[in-house]
């Protein structure tokens, strides 16, 4: 049986003057799955979302959503999608409930079903207590939740979320992740753009990495992390202690040899098995009689992905100094 595709885009091209926002992008989202579109600022994520949601016509290529062409059948496409754009777009002077009622009516719900749907979504998104307040009194996280709720009013077959947690504090981000996790567990097809590998890792079945309008990698989060090298163990030598000795004690621990930042007194070990390695670390430290002032397991960031995939960081950052490699890979 052929897998049913909720979103299929081939060779999407979009130019803005001299800027090539999309330079031939293919995207596929099977029904019921979540695609994470991962990329730094300016990669072309929003442009891709806008083309797929009929807001912008592509200059080249084609795209279908639920089998409907986004250019020739744009009206039909709009009946099966939900969009939560890059910035939370809710009417600040309407209450939370009024916002959802308005979207419900404009999506074709009858007055009574719009009201029921609004109440259900307010409940689901933990906004029932704030439902009667105008949205301008909401926190950033509440606004974003209302915005995502609005994109769900019409029970869309495909949901587009453009950087849903950008600008949220860690608590708001975790809250939204939990909600989106519940949503995707119920089988909603989602295309989610993000700058955070952790977010894509948590929510997506497949990740497509976009850079300067081009797909530079794609695969499951596991495949991508395997390429990037998974987690990293970071050890901080106690003041006065030699970090090289620390690095020597960790040789053979990870998937690659430890690196030492001599000036900072820091040792980094690439790992495949994150938390499982910690007892081994403790044993090695006590066997060598070494002490550390800090020990952290760090997940790879978008920057790590980009360093690995393109050899360049996403943004210009001061380069790490005096990094030397100790020992040999096992």
């Amino acid at each position: 049986m052929v897998e049913r595709l909720a979103v299929e885009a081939r060779g999407l091209v979009k130019r803005f003057g001299d800027v090539m926002a999309l330079a031939g992008v293919d995207l596929v989202v099977p029904a019921g799955e979540v695609l994470g579109l991962l990329g730094p600022n300016g990669a072309g994520k929003t442009t891709a979302v806008r083309i797929l949601t009929t807001l912008l016509p592509p200059d080249g290529g084609w795209a279908r959503v639920m089998g409907l062409d986004v250019v020739r059948q744009s009206g039909e496409v709009r009946r099966v999608i939900g969009l939560s754009g890059q910035y939370a777009a809710v009417d600040a002077y309407l209450t939370g409930r009024e916002n959802l009622l308005m979207i419900g009516r404009l999506s074709g719900l009858s007055r009574s079903s719009a009201r029921r749907r609004a109440d259900d979504l307010l409940e689901l998104f933990d906004l029932t207590d704030a439902a009667g307040r105008t949205a301008r009194t909401y926190s950033g996280g509440m606004r974003r939740r209302l915005d995502v709720a609005a994109s769900l009013v019409a029970r869309p077959a495909v949901l587009f979320l453009d950087e849903p947690t950008t600008g949220l504090d860690p608590r708001g981000r975790l809250g939204l992740w939990r909600l989106l996790g519940e949503l995707t567990a119920r089988g909603t097809t989602v295309l989610l753009s993000t700058q955070y590998l952790e977010e894509a890792d948590r929510l997506a079945d497949t990740i497509v990495v976009l850079d300067a309008g081009t797909v530079i990698a794609s695969g499951t989060p596991e495949q991508l992390k395997a390429r990037v090298g998974g987690d990293r163990l970071e050890l901080q030598a106690s003041p006065g202690e030699d970090p090289t000795a620390l690095a020597a004690a960790m040789v053979g621990l990870g998937s690659a040899p430890p690196t030492v930042d001599v000036d900072a007194g820091r040792v980094a070990v690439p790992l495949t098995d994150g938390p499982g390695i910690l007892p081994d670390v403790a044993a090695r430290l006590s066997a060598a009689g070494l002490r550390v002032s800090d020990l952290a397991l760090r997940r790879p960031t978008l920057d790590d992905v980009f360093l690995t995939l393109t050899g360049q960081p996403t943004t210009t950052e001061p380069s790490t100094t005096d990094t030397v490699v100790v020992g040999r890979p096992r």
């Binding site: 806008r50 949601t53 009929t54 807001l55 009206g75 709009r78 009946r79 999608i81 939900g82 969009l83 754009g85 890059q86 910035y87 939370a88 777009a89 009417d91 979207i103 404009l106 999506s107 074709g108 609005a150 019409a154």
Partner: peptide, 17 residues
């Protein structure tokens, strides 16, 4: 600028409404 029109344009509503 706030994205409201993007939201409206992605709905099946009439284009002049």
């Amino acid at each position: 600028t706030t994205g409201m029109i993007d939201r409206f344009r992605a709905l099946p509503m009439a284009r002049s409404a």
